[in-house]
Simulated scan of single mutants.
Amino acid sequence: MSQDFSGKNAIVTGAASGIGAAIARDLAGRGARVLVADYNSQGAEAVAGELGAGALAYAVNVAKAEEVEAMVAFAVREFGRLDLAVNNAGISGDQQSTGEMALENWRRVIDVNLNGVFYSMRYQIPAMLENGGGSIVNMASILGSVGWRGAAHYVAAKHAVCGLTKTAALEYSAQGIRVNAVGPAFIETPLIEGALSKKQLDGLVGMHPIGRLGQPEEVAALTNFLLSDAASFLTGAYYPVDGAFLAQ
């Protein structure tokens, strides 16, 4: 079955860099028209410009429901319909123990990483139903399956994203909408490289039995397979991309 996206229209949030940009590039390379959505408007414009005439940039704060609603309406208006969505936008937040976490730190991560995914599906699903269905991938994490010290906000959000994914899949699979979640381990992006010392980076690599960090393109490959017709019987599941991290 095909992984060709010709004639398909997609929204990718958090697409200005890293995993989101890799997903957008791969979708466009397979023929999709892509709305490159991100809080970073300049980054979104740069990626959309790289992808060519089939791509549009859109500035959005996914933590605000009204902005997400407007984003989906814009995609439908400009493309004519919505077929695919990748809800990838996310932030890490400050590392703080649960009993010491600042409430604003908690709220900010939950607003983006959890509420942003819910708002996205809330408006994407009706748009897809208007045209007989579609496919959604929500970006979770390995921390959607295990805990991590100092990251109660992030871990809680990613666990909840997996639950949202399963629930939406149950609700809409009979109406032609598939919903899956992808769980990357630590991925080699400028954000990680710039934030860690060599010693810290080596320690992070050592947590992955495969002996390296993942690449954004590796996450994009699985994500876009799940979006494609080749994955037509796959819905309601969580798929790690983790170099055996969770096998330990």
Rank of each mutant, 00 (worst) to 15 (best):
I91V: 15
M207S: 08
V182M: 12
L84D: 10
L103K: 11
V76P: 02
A151K: 15
V179S: 09
V205E: 04
S173K: 09
G80Y: 00
N105W: 00
N113D: 15
A157W: 06
V205S: 10
F118R: 06
I187E: 05
S97M: 11
V182N: 07
Q124A: 13
R149I: 07
P216C: 13
L170M: 10
G133K: 00
K198Y: 01
P126M: 13
Q200V: 01
G206F: 04
S97W: 02
G183W: 00
R178C: 05
V179P: 12
V205F: 03
P126Y: 12
H208N: 06
A140C: 15
M101I: 15
L204D: 13
F74P: 02
L129D: 09
L129P: 06
N180P: 06
S173V: 14
E171D: 14
I187M: 02
A140Y: 00
P126G: 09
W106R: 07
V182D: 08
G206N: 15
E188F: 01
G163S: 12
I192E: 03
Q175D: 10
Q200I: 00
Y172Q: 03
P184M: 14
G99K: 04
R77L: 00
S173I: 11
S141T: 11
A73M: 04
L191W: 01
G211Q: 06
A174E: 10
R81V: 02
A85V: 06
W106Q: 07
G93V: 07
A127K: 06
G144T: 01
T189Y: 07
M207N: 07
E193N: 15
G93Y: 04
F74H: 11
C162M: 14
V182Y: 10
L170C: 11
N105H: 09
Q124R: 00
T167K: 11
L129G: 11
Q200H: 00
S141Y: 03
V161K: 13
M121H: 03
Y119I: 03
W148F: 13
Y119E: 05
D83Y: 08
R122Y: 10
V146E: 07
K158C: 10
I192T: 05
A168F: 01
L103Y: 14
E104C: 00
L143W: 15
L196C: 10
G132Y: 07
L204W: 01
A75P: 04
A168D: 09
G132N: 09
A168Y: 02
E193M: 07
D94C: 00
G147Q: 11
E100P: 02
R107F: 05
S120E: 02
L114K: 03
V137M: 08
T167H: 11
A174M: 06
F186D: 14
G150V: 08
F79C: 08
Q95W: 07
A75L: 11
K198A: 15
Y123A: 04
E193T: 01
G150H: 10
H153P: 11
A160M: 06
F118C: 08
K199D: 14
P209I: 04
Y123E: 04
R77K: 12
G144K: 11
L213R: 14
E130T: 12
